[in-house]
Design a protein around this nucleic acid. Structure first.
Lengths: 239, 239
DNA sequence: TCATTAGTGACAGAATTTGGCACTATTACA
DNA sequence: TGTAATAGTGCCAAATTCTGTCACTAATGA
């Protein structure tokens, strides 16, 4: 039996049985008493809280609050979680956000630092407002999955972003803008872009954008976007 | 050097240098070419996408999108993340939720199954409505951190829940209820409880509850709560 | 006082990992 | 076309790590 598998088996067994002696555990996982003790020591090093009592009637007990889990997450998945929690927090008075932050901070800490820097730069351009205007939900489209990656790339690389836009009357036009920010007024998301042809800022409802595509042959110098006071970036992240 | 450490070193090195040959990597991490090749194979098994080109000028290249991170999360932290994403999804048309779900599903899969069962039972009692009534945000209090754990325990163990409640006029009363559900109408959260004294359901704004405490000496048989059609449980979770 | 339990240290044997080597397949370049 | 450079595989012995055994200490309850 693999060391890792044995560690898992020990944690499971402790969770199931409450209190166990080292000898019991050794029999259960099919290893020697010495090995189990070494495993317990390793688990404690990894952050599991295991109480122990020597003497008659003693044994080991796992603190259930310390039960932990691991998972390998890709950068995109971490990013999605990050946004979810940041929005939740920015959007209102929500419980758990402290705990969720703690969890995210742990995940984030494990990411390579340049990726974190990119994530933060990207989050700098996300703004959240207090409440959405009253919206007919049935009218809402679905945001294209490709939109966010395209926006992220265009924003970070300072490239122009092209797309098809369907306005409130249903008319479709082709647009090319310099992406400046994203504005979240739940449940609506807006893309804020500088339109170099019209020489003005424009807000686009993100569920009305289709076929987004960044244009790698173009580039621009980033500007600051003037936003109202009650809109704040969701920059305010764990740690 | 530990196998795990070497794997991390290889990933870091590939990220930093873009393209590297196996020989370069071997020198960098201080291991033999054969060992590095074995490590690459192991990393691929773990989900890292590593492109390779044989022949002159070839080498290895790590797909940056596949960079992964691990973290150990406690059950409470996973729970908090779970709620965040579930609420986000229930509250409206949001991007990323697919990705966030995928990340959460990975985390959840690694949890002990009895904990997952508890989480799901608890989430069954959470309901989310479409939009909040217009609320004076400045009037909103802060939810007590102890409230959720107390509610969770009371709900799962079917114990009564006692607390102090401050109504809209500011009058404070002591309440004891059988917790039935939680209702989320962002940004407000409500506790739905059966009041055995008044023999009726009562809704309590959670930011007006203080000193929550479950009463382990009491118990009750759980009832179904009649809810309107436009309120749906946020049960609809990853996987 | 005694049986029972956690915990430590040392050491030999078991198991796993590592390095070296010979090999194949692929590619760029002269 | 030939040659050097590269990824990748299989095999085996050496190096390293892990495991079990044993002897021990300390703490606890009966």
């Amino acid at each position: 039996m693999n060391t890792r598998l044995r560690h898992d088996a020990i944690v499971r067994s402790l969770r199931r049985n409450g209190t166990l002696t080292v000898a019991d555990l050794a029999q259960e996982v099919g290893a020697s008493r010495r090995t189990v003790l070494r495993d317990i020591s390793a688990l404690r090093d990894e952050g599991f809280v295991i109480h122990s009592e020597p003497g008659r009637g003693g044994g080991l007990q796992l603190d259930p609050q310390s039960v932990q889990t691991t998972a390998r997450l890709s950068v995109a998945e971490v990013f999605a979680l990050l946004i979810s929690v940041a929005c939740m927090r920015a959007a209102g008075n929500l419980p758990f956000s402290g705990l969720a932050d703690a969890g995210l901070a742990k995940i984030e800490r494990a990411l390579p630092s340049d990726k974190v820097r990119d994530l933060r730069r990207f989050l700098d351009c996300l703004y959240v407002g207090q409440l959405s205007p009253q919206v007919d939900i049935s009218d809402m489209g679905v945001m294209e999955p490709a939109l966010l990656p395209a926006f992220e790339t265009a924003f970070l690389q300072r490239h122009h972003l092209g797309f098809q836009y369907r306005d409130a009357k249903g008319a479709v036009t082709s647009r090319i803008v310099e992406p400046q920010a994203m504005l979240i007024l739940p449940p609506l998301w807006y893309l804020v872009g500088w339109d170099p042809v019209r020489e003005d800022f424009r807000h686009f409802r993100m569920d009305r954008i289709s076929r987004p595509k960044y244009l790698p042959n173009t580039s621009f110098r980033q500007r600051h976007v003037p936003f109202e006071d009650n809109i704040r970036p969701i920059r305010d992240l764990p740690r």
